[in-house]
Write a protein that binds this DNA or RNA. Structure first.
Lengths: 176, 176
DNA sequence: TATTGTTATACTCTATAACTATA
DNA sequence: TATAGTTATAGAGTATAACAATA
């Protein structure tokens, strides 16, 4: 082979090196996290729902969907899945007979704890090359960017399933 | 409403605040970039291919697929699409009659220039809250993380289409 | 009339495997 | 026998719209 004049945009040639690097790292982190979660039978969206419920149970599916920016139609399947595995329970909503009140089960709490352990473990690996002062500095810088970008701490853009008035999503293909 | 004991994991409660924030920002940046590219009729993958070809034309589809970590089957459709829009040309490969040599067209160069302008513009917006010294520091920190994570400057994980022996991808759903 | 949960349908995207023509 | 490009098929995931029950 040896035909590799490749090794293109190594940073300097990119018009948006920071955005690209940020995006690369962000997708990579999400990918690794998802892989490590797999042995638990969980996907990031499951983790997101569990973590959110742990902060306050009894919410309706619509409330959960809004909070995580997942479409309610998708939330149905997500709750179906987790209820089938005995991780959440649908109970009667105290004030709205149309809605369900979603609760965690004991096994779900144990599973969430384990998932959090895995997340913390990966966090350490990811940050290995940085000393404490660097980590603090990086965190502060990223938070400033996140704040300016208007990011909501509860919402991960990778889990969004459109709808929520949040900007176009349609893709421009000129294929067929 | 006012029923929002929500506002959960605001950073301190997260087991992996840096990884989560990084991922949030990375997905957000990719999302905004994709939206801004849409008016040009381009998706990030189109931009990736154009940018890569601009660094060296005449490569085979397989070489391009390897370089960008896109599956060759997907590369076919991508090149089909772009060829149909007059952005790339498939010519005879000088040394391998099985392969095509892919080249950019003049309109593609103009389009790539415009896309780069858009990218540079977004980069500035994203980095608005940081002064120059902060930007330099952030860039350095992210590069250290990227290097440690083994990221390839040419490959964006969000464009990967599996196959390439790069680790599992299968998802564990226990639905049906 | 609007909203919650649900379901059905169409559509997009991807994975996988196969095939051909070359190597 | 292996590889480049291509195509076909099936599957996962999503968007959209509709519906019944309730607000």
């Amino acid at each position: 082979m040896t035909t590799s004049p490749s090794r293109a945009e190594t940073g300097t040639l990119m018009p948006a090196p920071m955005a690209f690097l940020l995006s690369q790292l962000g997708f990579h982190a999400a990918q690794v996290f998802a892989e490590r979660l797999m042995p638990l039978g969980l996907q990031p969206r499951h983790f997101g729902l569990l973590a959110h419920l742990a902060e306050g149970e009894g919410r309706s599916q619509q409330q959960l969907a809004d909070a995580l920016a997942i479409h309610r139609n998708v939330m149905v399947g997500l709750v179906d899945d987790m209820e089938g595995r005995g991780l959440v329970e649908r109970r009667r909503h105290p004030s709205d007979r149309r809605a369900h009140a979603v609760f965690l089960t004991a096994p779900a709490r144990a599973l969430l704890a384990e998932a959090r352990r895995i997340a913390a473990e990966y966090e350490l690996e990811l940050l290995t090359p940085l000393e404490d002062s660097d980590r603090t500095a990086l965190m502060a810088l990223l938070q400033r960017l996140a704040r300016h970008a208007g990011l909501n701490p509860d919402i991960h853009p990778g889990l969004q399933t459109a709808n929520h008035p949040r900007g176009a999503r349609r893709v421009a293909e000129s294929r067929a």
